[in-house]
């Protein structure tokens, strides 16, 4: 379980990191918490000749909440997300979800940026970023460009991030209303069999807006516009929720794996979507 040899780089700022990526092309990979990349390198499923460790880049560890906007640096760990009281108060959805990722040791290392940039459909943050309608900051040779999380994922492990770019931040509006992240997994530390994030805003008993996103139910995270539309403007009674679940299920395309056959995943998805919507309404 030893990976093949590589050169190790530890740049002190984003510019230097981008410079290494530019010089080494697709032979270089950035290392955040390492708990997805290192196992892949140990299995020799990821070939990395130049490893660019981001741990010394202080600017990637900042969290700011100002004027209704939240910006989180890519190297903020799941543990830091859980531990940040201001963030927990502004975006309780994020804390609730981060607590359901992996286990304590992994959460000390695993980062929001790594979870997003990895492109693994089983990671939780991509679905959450769809739900929050986040914007990702990508630093490259020509500076930083913004990409909507909903436009970032092209397929499993295929994202809009180029070889000479790295995800440096996520930004989203402080969400209003109720929230929930429902995740079905076989055991602690496992990826989701199915998971669903819901943000629902109610106004005098009527749904003003609803954002529903799902994890590990297709080869990318899925944001269901039609599930949100099925709730918006309704009183969110039992039939409205059932319509939203049906709409969400029509957007996913799970595949059979060791977490179960397709029919089982569709069944579990239906349950977690319904639970997430119901709980988000209750807390709205």
């Amino acid at each position: 379980m030893i990976p093949s040899a590589f050169e190790y780089h530890r740049p002190a700022d984003v510019k230097s990191a981008v410079g290494i990526l530019q010089a080494q092309g697709d032979e270089a990979r950035v290392l955040a918490g390492g708990h997805s990349l290192i196992p892949m390198m140990k299995l020799r499923m990821a070939a990395v000749t130049h490893l660019v460790d981001l741990q010394d880049i202080a600017e990637l560890k900042a969290v700011s909440i100002a004027e209704g906007k939240v910006t989180i640096g890519a190297m903020v760990t799941q543990h830091m997300l859980i531990d940040n009281a201001r963030l927990a108060a502004s975006v309780p959805l994020l804390r609730e979800a981060a607590l359901q990722i992996a286990d304590p040791q992994v959460r000390y290392c695993g980062t929001i940026g790594g979870n997003i940039a990895n492109g693994d459909p089983a990671n939780d943050m991509p679905g959450l970023m769809q739900c929050l309608d986040a914007t990702l900051g990508l630093a490259g040779p020509n500076g930083t460009r913004n990409v909507k999380a909903r436009d970032f994922y092209e397929g499993a492990y295929v994202t809009a991030c180029e070889d000479d770019e790295l995800v440096v931040s996520v930004t989203f509006d402080v969400p209003k209303g109720g929230h929930a992240y429902e995740k079905q997994k076989r055991k602690i530390g496992d990826y989701a069999t199915a998971a669903c994030a819901a943000l629902i805003e109610m106004d005098g008993g009527t749904c003003r807006s609803a954002s529903i996103a799902m994890t590990n139910l297709s080869d990318t995270p899925i944001w269901s516009r039609s599930a949100g539309a099925a709730l918006t403007g309704t009183r969110c009674d039992t039939e409205d929720i059932a319509s939203a679940v049906t709409a969400a299920l029509a957007n996913i395309n799970p595949t059979e794996d060791n977490r179960g056959p397709v029919a089982f995943k569709m069944h579990v998805a239906g349950i977690v979507i319904k639970r997430a919507i119901t709980r988000a309404i209750a807390s709205a």
Partner: peptide, 28 residues
């Protein structure tokens, strides 16, 4: 040796980590 079992847990800079999933270089 696959970051599941935790038998290799050590503290690094005040955090519990699984030392099978940390490169020595990261601990510099």
């Amino acid at each position: 040796e696959t970051s599941h079992c935790g038998a290799c847990t050590v503290e690094m800079n005040g955090k519990s980590v699984k030392s099978c999933t940390v490169f020595a270089a990261q601990a510099d």
